[in-house]
Structure formats: C-alpha cells, structure tokens
Amino acid sequence: MMEQKTKKPISKSLIKRLHIIYSAQGIDDEQKRAILLDLTDGRTNTTKELTYSEAMYLCGYLNGTKKENRDLTITEREIRRRRSAVLKRVQRIGIDTTDWGAVNAFCLDTRIAGKKFRELDGEELLLLIPKLESILKKKEDGGY
C-alpha cells in the first residue's frame, strides 16, 4: 500500500483533474477501478475516496512526470504490489497460496487469466484484481 503521509481529503477540482487525465490517457472505468484498487491496496476503487497524497501521486504517475531512472524502480515495485494484491485475493478465495501448483491451476483457468501466475505481466495483474474482487463478492453473497 502506498504510504499515506497526509490524510488530507481530495478536492473537487483534483477529482476533475484526475478524470480529465483518465480520459486523455484513454483509461476506461474498469482500468480506472483496477488502478485505484492497486494504488490503495484494495481500500477503494473510486477517485473521490483517495487521499490528497494518493491523488497527487496518481496525477504524476499518469502524466509520466516521474523521473525515467525511477520508472524502473517504480515498475518493479508496482509489479510486486500487484502480485501481492492478486495473491491476497486468491488466498481469500480459498486457494492455498503456498502451493504454486494450486495457484497456477487457478490462474490457468481461461475465466481467470489463462496463464500461469509467474507469466502474468503488470497490466494483466492489474486487470485481474477487479475480477478477483468480483469473485470474492459473489462468494460472500453466497453465489460462488
């Protein structure tokens, strides 16, 4: 989860700014929700519930204003966070995450990812999070 140095609420103008960036970057609602879930480690999937520091980080990240030499570090960290976020949800679904065979069998299902866990790239991991959240919600509601 991204460190929250300040819990200052997000302003309406900053919400608008982020929505303009989403539109300019061609980010659809599903991708936006996945990005927000990843950024907040599953706390929220809506822009208006971001903290000020999360929103400012997201603006810089989406606009590509991070220094190029830090991009590799950020990317590596992002992939680790996404893997961790996916594994947490897979475990909550009931898959033994200490058994890579079980994790891979789950991920290989075409309805899930169609690939082994280690073969999933950052974008695929990001898109998998809302899918797993949906499965968890159905499981909680007794429909899975």
Rank of each mutant, 00 (worst) to 15 (best):
residue 1 M to L: 10
residue 2 M to E: 09
residue 3 E to K: 14
residue 3 E to Q: 12
residue 4 Q to T: 13
residue 4 Q to G: 04
residue 4 Q to L: 10
residue 6 T to F: 12
residue 8 K to H: 05
residue 8 K to N: 08
residue 9 P to I: 11
residue 10 I to R: 07
residue 11 S to I: 07
residue 12 K to I: 08
residue 14 L to D: 13
residue 15 I to K: 10
residue 17 R to M: 02
residue 20 I to K: 14
residue 20 I to W: 04
residue 21 I to V: 13
residue 21 I to C: 02
residue 21 I to N: 00
residue 21 I to Y: 02
residue 22 Y to I: 04
residue 23 S to F: 01
residue 26 G to K: 08
residue 26 G to E: 08
residue 27 I to H: 00
residue 27 I to P: 03
residue 30 E to C: 07
residue 30 E to S: 13
residue 31 Q to F: 02
residue 31 Q to C: 01
residue 32 K to H: 06
residue 32 K to D: 06
residue 33 R to V: 10
residue 33 R to Q: 13
residue 33 R to C: 01
residue 33 R to L: 06
residue 35 I to A: 05
residue 36 L to F: 06
residue 37 L to P: 04
residue 38 D to T: 09
residue 38 D to G: 15
residue 39 L to P: 07
residue 42 G to S: 13
residue 47 T to S: 15
residue 47 T to W: 13
residue 49 E to R: 14
residue 49 E to Q: 15
residue 49 E to D: 15
residue 50 L to Q: 10
residue 50 L to D: 09
residue 51 T to G: 06
residue 52 Y to R: 11
residue 53 S to H: 06
residue 55 A to T: 05
residue 56 M to R: 15
residue 58 L to R: 03
residue 58 L to M: 09
residue 61 Y to D: 09
residue 65 T to H: 12
residue 68 E to Y: 04
residue 71 D to G: 00
residue 71 D to Q: 15
residue 74 I to T: 07
residue 74 I to H: 04
residue 75 T to R: 15
residue 78 E to Q: 12
residue 79 I to M: 08
residue 79 I to T: 13
residue 81 R to H: 14
residue 84 S to R: 14
residue 84 S to E: 15
residue 84 S to M: 11
residue 88 K to C: 08
residue 89 R to W: 09
residue 90 V to P: 00
residue 91 Q to W: 03
residue 96 D to P: 02
residue 97 T to N: 02
residue 98 T to E: 08
residue 100 W to A: 12
residue 100 W to I: 13
residue 100 W to D: 13
residue 101 G to V: 01
residue 101 G to W: 01
residue 103 V to H: 03
residue 104 N to A: 03
residue 104 N to S: 02
residue 104 N to R: 00
residue 105 A to T: 03
residue 106 F to T: 01
residue 107 C to I: 00
residue 108 L to M: 10
residue 109 D to I: 00
residue 109 D to W: 01
residue 110 T to V: 09
residue 112 I to G: 03
residue 113 A to L: 06
residue 113 A to C: 04
residue 113 A to W: 04
residue 113 A to R: 06
residue 113 A to Q: 05
residue 114 G to R: 03
residue 115 K to I: 00
residue 115 K to L: 12
residue 115 K to P: 00
residue 115 K to C: 01
residue 116 K to L: 03
residue 116 K to Y: 00
residue 117 F to E: 06
residue 117 F to N: 07
residue 120 L to A: 02
residue 120 L to H: 00
residue 121 D to S: 05
residue 122 G to W: 03
residue 122 G to V: 04
residue 123 E to Q: 08
residue 124 E to I: 04
residue 124 E to V: 04
residue 124 E to H: 03
residue 125 L to I: 01
residue 125 L to S: 01
residue 126 L to F: 02
residue 127 L to P: 01
residue 127 L to V: 02
residue 127 L to E: 03
residue 127 L to D: 00
residue 128 L to C: 06
residue 128 L to F: 07
residue 130 P to A: 10
residue 132 L to Y: 08
residue 133 E to I: 08
residue 134 S to N: 12
residue 137 K to T: 14
residue 137 K to G: 07
residue 140 E to D: 12
residue 140 E to V: 07
residue 140 E to R: 14
residue 142 G to A: 10
residue 143 G to A: 14
residue 143 G to W: 14
residue 143 G to M: 13
